[in-house]
Structures are given as structure tokens and as C-alpha cells.
């Protein structure tokens, strides 16, 4: 099985003196479902940020989707990001855009035709059960609904990998379950690699998954 992420001796930190992740070596298979857990402040989100190039390794080698992120050019990084779907705990929706435009964002960036975009957005709105909220702006929706919009945006362009940072952290049970179902569906039906950073792995999950745990700057696989 191909590797979508390969990390060898990766150290991550926000300055040169204090490392949050120390010389981590691991890999993630293409099409797998992966959980990264750890206590608050352990470096889970920091590690996830490095997967989409928001943080470059201080040491070691990190390859994501075949792109070496240590010394990646901005154009190559943009190309990689075009094939990723990212979900944040704080949603990161553009508040001055309606939900349709937010969902369409990756499709617009990838240069899809207008008719394709409209069709895909409509289908995704149904998928995340927000058709009735069509035309509204993010701040007019509840937290759970906003996260469903963010989820639809992450799925819109059929990415090779979805990176989700605490996607259900602030959500009610209904929205949480919907998010997990969508992530499972993407993994099972589209063979999209899913990497989720979370405090707690949901018990209802049906897919086989890999589990990494971070503790004191070290990352290890939990069997």
C-alpha cells in the first residue's frame, strides 16, 4: 500500500529552542483512517499543521502526497493543498460569503466549471442536511451547522486526504454523528485518507482505523 505521509525524524516547534514534537518517525497509508490522540498541548494540532505545510519541520524529513515539505516552494505547496480537505475545530469559514460559496471554495480554486460547481454544491448541501439553510451566511448558523458546511467544503473536490482537527470538539451529538458518518463515507466509498486529531475516538465508528498517540513530544502507534 502506498504511503501518503512519511515522516522520518521529524521535529516540530514554533521556535528553534523548544520542540513540541521530537524526532517522530511514522507513516500513514494511502486510503487509511487514522486517529491522532494526546492530551491538551501535546502537539496534536501542531503535527496536523505540518501535514498541510503551515509549519515546516525544524529537523528530519516530512513527505506528504509525494511532496517534501521541508523546503517546498509556495507553488508546490499550493498544488498539494488543492488536493487536501481540511476541517478545523473553529470551522474557518469566510463569514462574508454565503454557505454555497464557502463550500465551492476548493472547486473555484481548482478551476471547475460553474455548472459543475453548482451541481456539486447542491449535492453536498443535501449530503450535510443543510439544503434548508441555502443562501445563509456562516454566522447565521449554529456551530454544528457551520462545521457541516466546513465538512462539505473539505469533501467538495474529492481530496486525496482529509485532515480534521477536533472536528466534533464543540458539537452536539447529532452534528458529531453526521460528521463521523461523512468521514467514514469518504474513506470507505472514495478511499480518501482521513487523519483526525481528537481527544476521544468515537465508539460508534465502523471502519478499521490506525491510532497514533502523542506523549511528551513522542508519537507512537497504539495497537
Amino acid at each position: 500500500m502506498d504511503k501518503v505521509i512519511v515522516a522520518e525524524g521529524v521535529s516540530l516547534g514554533y521556535n528553534n529552542y523548544e520542540m513540541i514534537i521530537n524526532e517522530a518517525t511514522f507513516s500513514i497509508d494511502n486510503g487509511s483512517f487514522v486517529f491522532i490522540t494526546g492530551a491538551s498541548g501535546s502537539g496534536k494540532s501542531t503535527l496536523l499543521k505540518s501535514f498541510f505545510g503551515a509549519l515546516k519541520p525544524k529537523k528530519g524529513s516530512l513527505i506528504v502526497g509525494g511532496v517534501e515539505l521541508n523546503s517546498v516552494s509556495s507553488s508546490k505547496l499550493n498544488l498539494l493543498r488543492k488536493h487536501l480537505g481540511i476541517v478545523f475545530q473553529d470551522y474557518k469559514l469566510v463569514n462574508e460569503w454565503n454557505i454555497e460559496k464557502n463550500i465551492a471554495l476548493p472547486l473555484l480554486i481548482n478551476g471547475y466549471e460553474k455548472s459543475v460547481i453548482e451541481k456539486q454544491v447542491e449535492s453536498l448541501l443535501k449530503h450535510v442536511r443543510l439544503k434548508h439553510q441555502s443562501g445563509k451566511f456562516p454566522l447565521e448558523l449554529s456551530g454544528g451547522e457551520q462545521q457541516r458546511v466546513a465538512m462539505a467544503r473539505a469533501l467538495a473536490h474529492n481530496p486525496i486526504m482529509i485532515l480534521a482537527d477536533e472536528p466534533t470538539g464543540n458539537l452536539d451529538d447529532y452534528s458529531s454523528q453526521l460528521i463521523w458518518n461523512l468521514l467514514e463515507g469518504a474513506n470507505e466509498q472514495l478511499e480518501t485518507t482521513v487523519v483526525v486529531v481528537t481527544h476521544r475516538i468515537p465508539q460508534t465508528l465502523k471502519v478499521d482505523y490506525k491510532h497514533f498517540h502523542i506523549e511528551k513530544g513522542s508519537i507512537y502507534e497504539v495497537n
Binding site: 507553488s75 471554495l105 476548493p106
Partner: peptide, 16 residues
């Protein structure tokens, strides 16, 4: 900043 950040995260080049 917010919009430019979000667009950048999805691979939008600086001009876009």
C-alpha cells in the same frame, strides 16, 4: 486576513 488565510489553506495562489 481571514479570507486570504482560508483561501491559502485550500491552495489558492496569492493573486487569487
Amino acid at each position: 486576513k481571514e479570507r486570504m488565510n482560508i483561501m491559502g489553506l485550500f491552495g489558492a495562489p496569492r493573486w487569487l
